[in-house]
Amino acid sequence: MCTSLTLTASDQTTILARTMDFPNVDPWVPTKLPAGTEWQPILGQPATTQFNIVGAARNLNGHTLFGDGINAAGLSCAELYLPSRVTYYDDPQSDKVNLTPQDFILWVLSSHQTVADVLADLPQVALIAHVWYAENKVYPFHWVLADATGATAYIEPTSLTLTATDNPIQVMTNTPTLADHYSGLAAFLQVPDTKQPTLTQASIAWLASGQPLPEGPIPTNRFIRTAINRLGHPQPKTGNDAENAALTYLKQVVTPKLENGQQKPNHNFTHYISFMNTKALTYTHIPIDTMRSQSLSVVDFAK
């Protein structure tokens, strides 16, 4: 139950931003992983990080589970939920790089510099429906990537062959798939097609009219609201402007935690908002309970 968007400012700074919405589990904390760190996928041989990595992670039985992050080459990646739509292999494949969904982000950030590098290696990857160390379920993830060149990629594992899904709006939430989200956005805006110029013009007109945007945690509503905000507002001028705009849009789709004993184990709520600045090479973490921003350099780990 997360929301992500990518913004590229006029100064060519690209920001990947997201909310992390998840049931009540161990906290996601800013985590630094230096280049040269050995990590062990649940399947296959140990791997070694080629770049510094910073992101939000949980430490489970000595293993690091990243929800999002950026490496020192400026490549960023975030995982979101795609329930009832994913297709994984049941068993490891002899001619593939076998990864559980939880291992995918570290595979991306450990050994790739750009989105193009990831897409070139993607045909080698087999996602396996296998539990991961301390967790007892297989997660239905999909992923968004962005790099310092401004390139983005959206990977929806709806078939065994992994490919990138076209997403010029650069917004992603949860189920349904992006194609259905686009159709829902066009229907909401009452336009005849899902082409980006059509949706952009309609979003500008919608915001100018002062008409309300959809509310609530439903993924389709969060997608429509965030897409109209992203398309209907002017392009940010600087990376700082892009971060501020992303924070404004994402605060509108925060799912609050229930208090006074009403919180249920399966209730998704927003733990944090994060920004990955692919030009400044920083990771910014904003916990929802304090809204105190913490920015970490992925290049200089002393900062």
Rank of each mutant, 00 (worst) to 15 (best):
Cys2Pro: 14
Thr3Leu: 07
Leu5Ala: 07
Leu5Lys: 03
Thr8Met: 05
Thr13Phe: 12
Thr19Leu: 12
Asn24Phe: 12
Val25Arg: 11
Asp26Phe: 09
Ala35Leu: 01
Gln40Trp: 09
Thr49Cys: 14
Ile53Tyr: 11
Asn59Asp: 14
His63Asn: 13
Ile70Ser: 03
Ile70Val: 04
Leu75Glu: 13
Tyr81Leu: 13
Lys96His: 14
Val97Gln: 14
Thr100Phe: 13
Val108Arg: 04
Leu109Val: 02
Asp117Ile: 09
Asp121Met: 08
Ala129Tyr: 08
His130Glu: 14
Ala134Asn: 10
Phe141Cys: 10
Leu145His: 07
Ala148Asp: 05
Ala148His: 01
Thr149Met: 04
Thr152Glu: 00
Ile155Lys: 00
Leu160Ala: 06
Ala164Glu: 07
Ala164Ile: 00
Asn167Ser: 02
Ala179Ser: 13
Ala186Met: 02
Ala187Glu: 12
Pro192Gln: 01
Gln201Asp: 15
Ser203Asn: 04
Ile204Pro: 03
Pro212Lys: 09
Leu213Gly: 01
Gly216Phe: 13
Ile218Phe: 14
Arg225Pro: 03
Ala227Arg: 00
Leu231Lys: 05
Gly232Tyr: 01
Thr238Ile: 11
Ala242Trp: 12
Asn244Arg: 13
Gln252Arg: 08
Val253Ala: 03
Thr255Asp: 07
His271Asn: 08
Ser274Asn: 10
Phe275Gln: 12
Met276Gln: 09
Ile288Gln: 12
Ile288Leu: 15
Thr290Met: 11
Ser293Lys: 14
Ser297Met: 08
Asp300Ser: 14
